[in-house]
Design a protein around this nucleic acid. Sequence first.
DNA 1: GCCACCGGTGGC
DNA 2: GCCACCGGTGGC
Length: 348
Amino acid sequence: MFIVFLKNHPKEENLKFVAMQSRSPKITIKMGGKRPEITPPTVRSVHETLEKDQNALEGPSVPSNNDRKETDVNILDDSSSECSTDDEDKNKQMVVYDHSMNGSEVVKAVKKPNLDKPRAVSKTPPKVGAFTVQCANCLKWRLIPDQEKYEVIREHITDQPFLCETTRQWKRVVSCDDPTDIEQDGTRIWAIDKPNIAQPPPGWKRILRLRSEGSSKFADVYYTSPTGAKLRSLPDVSRYFDSHPEHAQGIGLGRFSFQIPRPLRENYVKKRPTMAAPKTPDTLEPSPVEPIVWSGPAENLDLQLAEPLSWAGPVEDKNGMPAYLNTPELDPVNQAAKKAKRDDFNCL
DNA sequence: GCCACCGGTGGC
DNA sequence: GCCACCGGTGGC
């Protein structure tokens, strides 16, 4: 289940579905199954990007991940990577999803106006730009015209897998033979949405607010009540019902879910600093040995501990070799390589 | 003063 | 490590 996120330019707030190029890695994902496939980010020229987006939206293409079986739903965002530069920002362009054509959605790539101007607010959190669901049969992505339809699909995605034919609900004629609406080509930020979330009760609206890259959380969910109250948690909703019993009729807390999507890019969210890890043999640093000063009587020199100390030092295998050679996670060299790899992703 | 956004933390 | 929950705060 996917959502594609877009960060709208302030002047483009009226555009419902806008995607801007970013250097996000290409990611595909399979619900409840294999890990996402991530390929390194690439930088493309404006021309290349335009051509590729056109191909993605109009040309014959198929999802790159062939082993997906389940239906996915998606939300897209545009937000560029923290590693992007002003020059790269200039190369951004938009893909506009125009669903205003009587249900016959047309997706077209357009050049972003004012490419020379940097985006007004680079720190503003991204906005959801598009919803897309994967056909359970052909695995192609189908854009969903609006959030309401998306929420309907999401609510029953497990029991009623999404198919290309489902788009006929909004009078769109598309089949598995048609090219995918949108491709996971690294030009957008994708997020895995949670399946089977109930539609908000009548009069209520479920709002998803994305946070900026590097935040401690990816997003926040809140509900707006019929009275306009903004509720941030189930206890909030419960308290609201206590004070507005007239709005609680027939509405259980089960109708509310504050689950947030998960970004496909693992480093989108700042990792919580971990507690100091217990020292393992490979992390133990040689430290200066303090001389033991013994001031007791000489006859106590043979004093020994009654119980043997547990040994936390390197353990040898049966051949007398360090244990970490058989256990890569204990290998200090292996650990250093892993750390270097992690640092590569941080771009800091 | 309000509120969107963010950080922290306790519980699991 | 993830998530639910809520307090803090900067910008308006």
